[in-house]
């Protein structure tokens, strides 16, 4: 049984059909890349998994739970983490505090009242910051970070959250080639320990990390297979027509 299983999912935005009859399944431990032309519904697919939008038809099942009607925090507590297309960190909080918020094993109000700054947690968070190259910025506010650093902070936050399933929306957008490579390296290391779904446009990056690629087009799944299979796929080629082909999207 797959860890994540979407069946016949349909999402509408006041009449506009963003997802229609989407089937999408991911096995535990897999690293799945999700690609497709602009407006294909990739972000919406992640939204429907993490509870941001709700499907009008179909089922979203995660580890045996029907999560289609759950709120965002309930989905998160089941072990699903999300990185957004637009980097979103807490700009007024320090890097350290951003990581602390993300480290959310016990999310209750009253539990956290007794949860004061502890040296051991601090050490762990500092290691994470060092890992993504933000050691110097540990006590600086996140609003002062550059775009690339913000991306890295968000990735570190995902690591702090330590979820079973990680949904990443264009993690390498705005990164230099070197940073993109570093991200690929990181994802390869997380492979197996976590189940990961990455939405990406960068084919070089995808080739570095992907086992299986899923291609979306007009709100549904168009094709699924290895990089070589997808590149040869005639329907994928025509879907990307006019957007400069799969490599130019």
């Amino acid at each position: 049984m797959p860890l994540l299983d979407l069946k016949g999912v349909r999402v509408e935005f006041s009449g506009f059909v963003a997802l229609s009859d989407l089937d999408f399944a991911v096995e535990k431990g897999e690293l799945r890349c999700l690609i497709g032309p602009n407006g294909a519904g990739k972000t919406t697919a992640l939204d429907v998994i993490c509870g941001k939008v709700q499907a009008v038809a179909g089922r979203v099942v995660y580890a045996g739970h029907d999560i289609g009607r759950l709120q965002e925090h309930q989905v998160s507590r089941l072990g699903i983490a999300r990185k957004f297309q637009v980097p979103s960190v807490f700009r007024e909080l320090s890097v350290r505090n951003n990581l602390d918020v993300a480290y959310s094993k016990r999310p209750g109000v009253f539990r956290n009242l007794g949860n004061w700054r502890r040296a051991d947690v601090d050490d762990g968070l500092a290691k994470l910051a060092e890992f993504v190259g933000l050691k110097e910025q540990f006590n600086q506010s996140a609003g002062a970070l550059s775009h690339g650093q913000t991306q890295w902070l968000e990735i570190a936050m995902l690591l702090a959250q330590d979820a079973e399933l990680i949904l990443m929306d264009e993690p390498t957008a705005g990164m230099t080639a070197q940073e993109t490579h570093k991200t690929a390296e990181l994802l390869n290391r997380l492979k197996g320990r976590h189940t990961i779904v990455v939405v990406e446009h960068d084919m070089g990056f995808i080739k570095e990390v992907a086992d299986v690629i899923s291609v979306m087009h007009q709100g549904r799944l168009l094709a699924e297979g290895t990089v070589a299979e997808i590149e040869r796929h005639p329907e994928v080629k025509s879907a990307y027509l006019g957007s400069g082909g799969i490599h130019g999207a």
Binding site: Q71, S104, Q161
Partner: peptide, 19 residues
């Protein structure tokens, strides 16, 4: 701390499992 995170970006906080 979570209160301050909510002040900053209420939506984002939800995805870390906080009600």
């Amino acid at each position: 701390l979570v209160m301050q995170a909510i002040r900053d970006d209420e939506m984002r906080v939800r995805y870390f499992g906080y009600d």
